[in-house]
Design a protein around this nucleic acid. Structure first.
Length: 458
RNA sequence: GGCCGAGUGGCAGAGUGGCCAUGCAGCGGAUUGCAAAUCCGCGUACGUCGGUUCGAUUCCGGCCUCGGCCUCCA
C-alpha cells in the first residue's frame, strides 16, 4: 500500500503525493529552549523522525526542518531569574535538547533554524502582510487582521462566532477585531529586541515558524507536524498569515498532529507539574527503550505514561536483541524491511502494528535454521531501522540496560568460573548456590551451547 | 457552552461486519542437572441501552464516563 497519512485539515487519511517528488519537505515545531524537555515534548520528535525515515526510504531528497524557538517571554523570565544573559539559557538548553533527542535515536533534521536568526525575514513578511491589507500597526504592535482571511478557522474547525463567544481574555484596546493576533510586539530596553519599522521590538510566536518555513522550505510544503495542542491557535494562525503573505498559495499539503502523552490520564504539562523529564528517564533506561515506548501507541492516540510503560519497552527490546544474539552465528543478510512492516507504517504510521510484525519476525528467527536464519536476521534489523531501533549489537544493548547499575563484571566472571567448576564436578547444589550469589548481584545467567553468558537483570 | 477525541482480556495496545492481533504478566507442556533463554498450547476482551443485519466489538442513534482545545503549552 502506498503511503497514506491522516490530514488534520480534511480529517481523513489521504494518499501522500508530494508537491515535488524530487524535493519532499517537512517542518515540525521544535522546542522553546528555556528548560529541560519532558517526555511529552519528545513524542512528536520521535514520531516525525519515524515519518522522516519512512519518507527517506521512498524519496531521494527529503528536507526536514525542526526549529529552535530562542526568543520567548519564558526564556526572558528564566534568564532574569538566573541573573544570566539570555543566550546562556538558550545555548545551554539547545545543546541539551539536541543531545537528548540524539539519545532517542532521532536523526538530525536537515535544518535546525533558530528564530533569532530570521528576524529580517519575519519583518519582511510582516511588511508584505501590511501591504496586502492583512495586517496593521497599532501602538508599537503589528496585528494580523483575522477577518481578512475568509478561511480562518478551517484547520481547527472553529467558527468565528464560537471563538468570540468563548473569548475569555480581555481584548486589547488597539485590536480592530478580538481575534486579531500579534505579529510584532514592542520590547522594553531590558528585553531582547530588534529595530523594525514599528520601533524596537520582537516577533510574535506564530510568525517565526511561517518565516522559517518560507526561508528554508519554500511557500508550499508537504508536511507540517506538531502536537495536537498546536492546532489552535498556532497552526491556524500560521496558515492564515502564510497563505495571505503568499497570495493565497497552498501553505501545507498535509497537517499532522500527534496525540498527547498523559500521566494518570491527564495531560503532561509544565503548568500542571506532572512532568517526567527526558534526562531523568535516560538514567533509568536506554534512549532506545524510551523511543520504543513512545512508538508503542499509535501517534494520534493518547499514550498514558507510567513506569510500567518503560519496563515493558525494555523487556520487549531485550527479547528482540536476544533473538539477534542467538542468531549471532550467522551474518545478517542485506535485506529490505519486510512488506508487513512497511505496510503497517504506510497506513498512517501504524507503529503498534509494525511492532507486532517485528515480534513475529523475531519468533521466526528464533526457530529458523540454515539460510533462512541469515535472511530473517537481516530483515529484523532492516525493520528495526525504520523504527529507529535494533541498530546496535545485542551485547551493547545488554550493557546499556545494566549501565545504570553498578555491576562488578570481574566478580561475575569469577563466580561463573566457580560455578562451571562445580558443575563439572557434578556439585549441582554448589553450582546453584553460586548462581544465587550471581542473581543477588542483579545478573541473569544463561547456559547455552555449552557456554555461560550473563546480562543485567532489569 | 462550542469544537475534537477516547472507552478492547490482569496490564499495554492494534484491528475487523462472521475466522489469529502482538507484547508483558499468568497457567500447562517441551527443552534444561536445575534454571534462564527458546518453542508449543491455554484463557468465553471489546462502556451502556436501543436500531440496522442471517450475523456487530466493528455500521447508525441515545446515554454514561474520561480526556484535549477554545489562554503559554508537544
Amino acid at each position: 500500500m502506498p503511503l497514506h497519512l491522516y490530514n488534520t485539515l480534511s480529517r481523513r487519511k489521504e494518499l501522500f503525493t508530494p508537491i515535488d517528488p524530487a524535493r519532499v519537505t517537512m517542518y515540525v515545531c521544535g522546542p522553546t529552549v528555556y528548560n529541560y524537555v519532558h517526555i511529552g515534548n519528545a513524542r512528536p520528535v520521535v514520531v516525525f523522525d519515524t515519518v522522516y525515515r519512512l519518507l527517506a526510504r521512498e524519496y531521494p531528497k527529503v528536507i526536514y526542518a525542526r526549529n529552535i524557538t530562542d526568543v520567548d517571554d519564558k526564556i526572558n523570565a528564566a534568564a532574569q531569574a538566573g541573573g544570566v544573559d539570555i543566550s546562556e539559557i538558550t545555548g545551554k538548553y539547545t545543546r541539551i535538547y539536541c543531545e537528548e533527542m540524539a539519545a532517542l535515536n532521532t536523526l538530525p533534521p536537515t535544518i535546525e533554524p533558530h528564530a533569532t536568526q530570521h528576524i529580517p525575514q519575519m519583518i519582511a513578511m510582516i511588511q508584505e502582510l501590511i501591504a496586502g491589507g492583512h495586517a496593521y500597526a497599532a501602538e508599537g504592535h503589528v496585528l494580523f487582521h483575522v477577518p481578512s482571511y475568509a478561511d480562518y478557522g478551517k484547520l481547527s474547525g472553529r467558527a468565528r462566532e464560537d471563538m468570540i463567544a468563548g473569548a475569555r481574555v480581555e481584548v486589547a484596546p488597539y485590536k480592530k477585531d478580538p481575534a486579531d493576533f500579534v505579529l510584532w510586539k514592542p520590547s522594553t530596553p531590558d528585553l531582547p529586541g530588534w529595530d523594525s519599522p514599528w520601533g524596537r521590538g520582537r516577533p510574535g510566536w506564530h510568525i517565526e515558524c511561517s518565516s522559517m518555513i518560507e526561508t528554508h522550505l519554500g511557500n508550499s510544503i508537504d508536511i507540517h507536524g506538531g502536537g495536537h495542542d498546536l492546532i489552535f491557535p498556532h497552526h491556524e494562525n500560521e496558515l492564515a498569515q502564510s497563505t495571505c503573505a503568499h497570495g493565497g498559495k497552498l501553505y501545507v499539503k498535509y497537517w499532522m498532529h500527534n496525540g498527547f502523552l498523559t500521566m494518570d490520564k491527564e495531560k503532561m504539562s509544565k503548568s500542571l507539574g506532572n512532568i517526567v523529564r527526558v534526562h531523568e528517564l535516560l538514567d533509568q533506561a536506554p534512549g532506545e527503550a524510551i523511543r520504543w515506548a513512545l512508538l508503542s501507541a499509535h501517534y494520534r492516540q493518547p499514550l498514558d505514561w507510567s513506569d510500567d510503560t518503560l519496563t515493558q519497552a525494555k523487556r520487549t527490546l531485550t527479547r528482540l536483541y536476544t533473538a539477534l544474539e542467538q542468531a549471532g552465528d550467522v551474518p545478517a543478510e542485506a535485506a529490505a524491511a519486510p512488506a508487513g512492516v512497511v505496510e503497517a507504517l504506510s497506513d498512517d504510521l501504524n507503529t503498534p502494528k509494525a511492532m507486532a510484525e517485528i515480534a513475529s519476525l523475531a519468533g521466526a528467527l528464533n526457530q529458523a535454521t540454515g539460510p533462512a536464519k541469515a535472511k530473517l536476521k537481516g530483515e529484523l534489523i532492516a525493520a528495526g531501522a525504520l523504527l529507529g531501533v535494533l541498530q546496535r549489537s545485542p551485547q551493547d544493548w545488554f550493557a546499556a540496560v545494566g549501565a545504570n547499575k553498578a555491576i562488578d563484571s570481574a566478580e561475575v566472571e569469577r563466580l561463573i568460573a566457580a560455578r562451571a567448576a562445580a558443575r563439572a564436578a557434578k556439585d549441582f547444589a554448589g553450582a546453584d548456590r553460586i548462581r544465587d550469589q550471581i542473581a543477588a548481584l542483579g545478573v541473569v545467567i544463561e547456559d547455552r551451547a555449552g557456554k555461560t553468558t550473563w546480562r543485567a537483570a532489569e
